[in-house]
Design a protein around this nucleic acid. Structure first.
Lengths: 256, 256
DNA sequence: CGCGATTTGTGCACGTCTTCACAAGCGCCT
DNA sequence: AGGCGCTTGTGAAGACGTGCACAAATCGCG
């Protein structure tokens, strides 16, 4: 900590320097910091204060400092954080120094969109394979990749190490696909199907459900409407429209 | 609470019965319960125990009971919950008794997929308008809807009340679109663009960032790999593959 | 009619996350 | 060299969320 030469992060030659086990809430925010930092770097900033970075990432500055302190303190008091160094540091902790291979199963509506999403490539991931169970979709070429049958998963996995599996199938097929992914050694799954997956211990599943997000918004909408029963100014849907303020609480409740 | 005739939920004729203000974590889980309940109803169940429902929704049963207790206790001790009644109750609380209109801005890769996603329609939402800033996309018909120019938003909003705006544009355009949505009175926004939005107080923003989800998984993958330095059985990537267990902690950390 | 099996609802203790507030550290200017 | 302003890192307090464990309530059966 006293040493200002970063302990073991980037020159990843020696043994792994024992990843600090970060609070889950912190891990969930690091990618957002990373994105903000890249923006700042592109804008020419060499250093950034916790205040500035926290504003760019939409969080409280104290929270940001505490988060960063967990990965070993790379700031300089009175100055701020070195943008390039911090990027390097966060990318290391998130394991983005190696470009991870992603297998995408389910090339329907959503799968198509994901296959073409450049945000994956630009942020450390590479779609290594497209798979589908529907024979009529097998063979189709999307974005330079040919769709293969999901039963070829073992072959795909033997060709190269799949780090993450993405499930974009209908709910009915999702569990079966998850089982197949687990069988070939995948231990991280991103599930877009609206269902709960059962997986062995040691396998991480994250779920993204678009309808659920809308339903949560619907609740707040419903609540706001029921509160408008008490007349504020005009009772109209849009009341005052004050100048733009930072959405302090709203947005951070999300990533969590 | 003692009355077994539901207090004021479904027969929504009178005044609004003062939405209980639920813990945010509970709200985030209600949609999952709802989905599980619909499955159970389709399977012919008339009642379900907290144990059964919690298993179907992938959460702890005590947590489920506490969540449901917040909306006023609709269970019967010794029996469980009435499935149909609980569905009605949760849908009411989430504000799904009215089909909410959604305006989708940005008909690129992802927007296309969202426009065709039937999970919206089947779970209480209706895509009321597709909008884009790119003139070459205006006029295109997707799923029975014609893409209109984003500047027509005021016209769209005056035709029918937009409850929720979905932003599926590139990051650079997102803030501008958010401002336009807010200007026409939208107070709930679902943002797929990888950036932080500034909105006035009273406007809810939820963010979904696919790359962030992958990066969080990447962290855990990285961690697991660094832990494999301590040899367990064979040191191979996949160690034991124990029989399928419920992913106890993993999955619930997600929705949060 | 009473009893036991079952299941809900919740008090309580614990852990996690957030936020404030401030001491310690750093650079710059005089 | 010394002091001043700025910024980090963190202790402590409080809010929030979780999960156990059990009392209260209900049903069905003898």
């Amino acid at each position: 900590m006293s040493q200002h030469r970063h302990p073991g992060a980037p020159g990843r030659a020696g043994a792994v320097p024992a990843l600090p086990d970060l609070p889950e809430a912190t891990v969930a925010r690091l990618p957002e910091y990373l994105r903000a930092l890249h923006n700042l770097a592109d804008a020419g900033h060499e250093t950034i204060s916790s205040e500035g970075l926290s504003a760019a990432a939409g969080v409280n500055s104290a929270k940001l400092r505490k988060d960063l302190s967990h990965l070993g303190s790379y700031g300089t008091r009175g100055v701020g954080y070195d943008v390039a160094l911090l990027i390097e540091q966060i990318e290391y902790v998130l394991g983005l120094t190696q470009r991870r291979a992603v297998a995408l199963v389910g090339v329907g509506n959503l799968g198509h969109a994901l296959a073409g999403y450049d945000g994956f490539a630009s942020r450390g991931f590479r779609i290594a394979a497209l798979l589908d169970a529907d024979p009529s979709r097998v063979g189709e070429e999307i974005n330079g990749l040919v769709v293969r049958h999901v039963d070829e998963l073992p072959a795909v996995a033997s060709e190269e190490s799949i780090a993450i599996g993405v499930i974009a199938t209908p709910a009915a097929a999702a569990q079966r696909v998850a089982d197949q992914l687990v069988a070939v050694g995948v231990t991280s799954i991103l599930n877009f199907a609206p269902c709960v997956l059962s997986v062995p211990e040691g396998v991480d599943v994250r779920k993204v459900d678009l309808a659920i997000e809308l339903q949560i918004l619907s609740f707040h909408e419903h609540r706001k409407a029921s509160l408008t029963a008490l007349p504020a100014t005009g009772g109209s849907a849009l009341t005052a429209l004050p100048g733009r303020l930072a959405a302090t609480d709203t947005q951070e409740a999300i990533g969590t």
